[in-house]
Design a protein around this nucleic acid. Structure first.
Lengths: 145, 145
DNA sequence: TTAATGTGCGACTAGAACGGTCGTATATGT
DNA sequence: ACATATACGACCGTTCTAGTCGCACATTAA
């Protein structure tokens, strides 16, 4: 309930890792997986999804791997999460074509839609660059209030 | 991923319903379930959880049912959701005694903890009273920015 | 006092979602 | 040619979720 999937978690870890090694070589899925103790094949899958959404760029062949395709400050946590898990929807009936069978009667749909927007806003305003910064960073602390 | 459970959804619907009928009789689980086309036994279960957390008060016997035990303006969406689904945690390793096996290496734990706080803040600031108000209500719109 | 109408609660089941693996195809640098 | 990467889909076991059922207990109206 209301939890990030592990894959999304791994995605954030990977992207943050790539951000820290931005000017280095391309990092292979294997390399990243090993550093954080995650299954290599699973990490590869996660990175594939990120590559598909052009958040990272894949480079085949030996000494290949993944690199960020944007500046860390231009990548939001929301982008990474929704690239892996699909659109962030607080309820299944937020979209019009949802499978909510009681759309007419459901009285909480509209209020929840607005709560959903607020959450999207929070996630969208956190960048990878911020996540790589010091904990005392003022821009993040400002979010907490 | 990142979705409210249906039970939590039902809980919000029920609480909002009770808020609207605050000065009327006590509403039975059956009555509420029927109005929104939800299984009665399931709605009963949801209401039991809410009763357990003292969000609603149960009244046994014929012509019994449930009533809000607080003012709608004093009940947050967060209360209702966490009463049903347990504490709202964006990741499984936010708590110290979590089962995250890579606590040492995991580099996104701290940033995510702060995002989690922001989300708690959003959910905690939305009251049932607000959810029962008009869509144009300024207090809610203010949240969106 | 009895019947009707409620809640309270635990056991149970079907189905979906999630985490993770494997095999194979493809691309690339040496 | 070969080693090292990514790409991708099929597959599988486990966990979570939604929902049901049965029974016990409480209250009230008649």
């Amino acid at each position: 309930m209301f939890k990030l999937s592990k894959k999304a978690d791994y995605g954030l870890i990977a992207v943050k890792h790539l951000a820290l090694h931005r000017r280095d070589h391309a990092c292979s899925a294997n390399e990243i997986a090993e550093e954080y103790g995650i299954s290599a094949t699973l990490m590869a899958k996660v990175l594939q999804k990120l590559a598909h959404k052009s958040i990272v760029a894949a480079k085949h062949g030996s000494s290949g791997g993944y690199q960020l395709s944007k500046e860390p400050s231009q990548i939001s946590a929301l982008e990474v999460i929704s690239a892996i898990d699909g659109p962030v929807l607080i309820t299944s009936c937020v979209t019009n074509h949802g499978n909510c069978d009681a759309t007419q009667r459901c009285s909480v749909k509209e209020p929840l839609r607005r709560v959903n927007e607020s959450i999207l806003n929070v996630l969208g305003s956190v960048t990878i660059a911020q996540m790589s910064e010091d904990p005392q960073d003022p821009s993040l602390v400002a979010l907490r209030t």
